Simulated scan of single mutants.
Amino acid sequence: MIDMAVQAEADWPADVDWEALANRAARAAIERTPQAFWLDAPVTIEVAVRLTDDAEVHTLNRQYRGKDKPTNVLSFPMVQPDLLDTVTQNSDDGEVLLGDIVLAHGVCAREAAERGIGVAEHATHLIVHGCLHLLGYDHQGDAEAEAMESIERAAMAQLGLHDPYLIDED
């Protein structure tokens, strides 16, 4: 089971069920990883999602990544990658805090407009992306990026949404 705790600031669309969206996105991401068994395990996987503004993400990005600008999504894993395979076996209370995902509204809205999609659809992709980071995926090298993007594409297709890496040549 996945337990998503979502906190949305005022700028994020109020007509979206952000918890349901985040839950679907995280489930679609996890299903395509070696941790898919978690979804049927007798534990609760906890992920906190904060939908905030560019200023807060800018501060976090500078503080934790040394980058003095806002970005679309930040992920803060709580489980070391080498412990992912056994973390559900070592849970005393049946809960595993996987980590936090933080999205910047302004960056997300601008990117969505550039792609011609809605903010909720782009946020779905960013939550899939952020969840994969919580699971130890990265995109530093070409092989890592291709593996991560393949999972993201499959997750988005399952959700009936756009290919986030489709390049429009027009």
Results as ranks from 00 to 15, higher is better:
residue 19 E to T: 10
residue 98 L to W: 09
residue 51 L to A: 11
residue 30 I to T: 02
residue 9 E to A: 08
residue 80 Q to Y: 01
residue 151 I to M: 07
residue 160 G to P: 09
residue 41 A to R: 08
residue 157 A to T: 14
residue 149 E to S: 10
residue 75 S to C: 09
residue 85 D to C: 01
residue 51 L to R: 12
residue 107 V to P: 15
residue 60 L to K: 11
residue 126 L to A: 10
residue 61 N to C: 12
residue 36 A to T: 13
residue 125 H to Q: 13
residue 65 R to C: 09
residue 94 G to S: 10
residue 6 V to P: 14
residue 145 A to P: 00
residue 109 A to F: 07
residue 90 N to S: 01
residue 88 T to Y: 15
residue 42 P to N: 13
residue 8 A to S: 12
residue 18 W to Y: 15
residue 74 L to P: 06
residue 122 H to R: 06
residue 64 Y to H: 11
residue 64 Y to G: 12
residue 33 T to F: 04
residue 75 S to K: 07
residue 16 V to A: 12
residue 42 P to S: 01
residue 54 D to C: 13
residue 37 F to W: 08
residue 125 H to G: 00
residue 2 I to F: 13
residue 144 E to C: 03
residue 93 D to A: 07
residue 8 A to C: 03
residue 42 P to H: 03
residue 157 A to N: 06
residue 130 G to F: 01
residue 26 A to V: 09
residue 14 A to Y: 04
residue 133 H to R: 03
residue 43 V to H: 12
residue 136 G to L: 00
residue 95 E to L: 05
residue 169 E to K: 10
residue 121 E to S: 12
residue 91 S to M: 05
residue 54 D to R: 06
residue 27 R to T: 07
residue 63 Q to P: 01
residue 93 D to V: 08
residue 11 D to W: 07
residue 82 D to C: 02
residue 46 E to G: 13
residue 150 S to N: 03
residue 88 T to L: 03
residue 79 V to N: 04
residue 40 D to Q: 05
residue 1 M to F: 02
residue 23 N to G: 11
residue 168 D to H: 07
residue 164 P to D: 04
residue 109 A to Y: 08
residue 59 T to Q: 13
residue 46 E to F: 01
residue 70 P to T: 14
residue 56 E to N: 10
residue 25 A to V: 02
residue 170 D to Q: 05
residue 31 E to S: 05
residue 97 L to G: 15
residue 76 F to W: 09
residue 140 Q to A: 01
residue 92 D to E: 09
residue 118 G to C: 04
residue 31 E to L: 12
residue 169 E to I: 15
residue 128 V to M: 00
residue 137 Y to P: 00
residue 49 V to Y: 06
residue 167 I to P: 12
residue 71 T to E: 09
residue 92 D to Q: 15
